[in-house]
Amino acid sequence: MERRKFLGFGIFAAAAALVPGTLSAEDYRKTKPDVWTAHTMEDAIAKMYGAKPLIEQGVTLTAPDVAANGGAVPVDFSSEIAAKSVAVFQSSNPEATVCAFTLNEYSVIDFSIKMKLKQSGTIIVVVEGKDGKLYAAKKSLNVALGGCEG
């Protein structure tokens, strides 16, 4: 039994080593691990971008006012700002960060995602402009049925 466990672990470790990391421009989970464990949006944004003011313009964020199913809340966001990255945060779940996109010359900021929200709260989308400023859009929504069980 012990030997079997050991072999199993070996296969798992080998698989982990083969993960293609070279494709990505930046894997924020590796370069900024603190962002993903931060519990508040303010903390997560500060760990991602440093303590900078959020300019609430230039970003369009669409989400329902009331989410019937917290397990898959549709969130759309777009912007015309020339940007380096986009990140999505929320205040409903134990940790604040949902996802982060690295942009390049091919990128168009026009995303739709579905996220889990455990309870009512606020979503913030932050666009990091090439000018170094942070542009953001906020939206508060009610969640009828919490969806962290999925």
């Binding site: 898959a72 929320q90 940790e95 996109f101 026009d110 996220m115």
Partner: peptide
Amino acid sequence: VVLDMSSSQFLSKNPIFKFSFK
């Protein structure tokens, strides 16, 4: 690379997403 996304546990189950590029 036309999409580079780091994600957390809070994307939905069987996550659907949409993105664009030039």
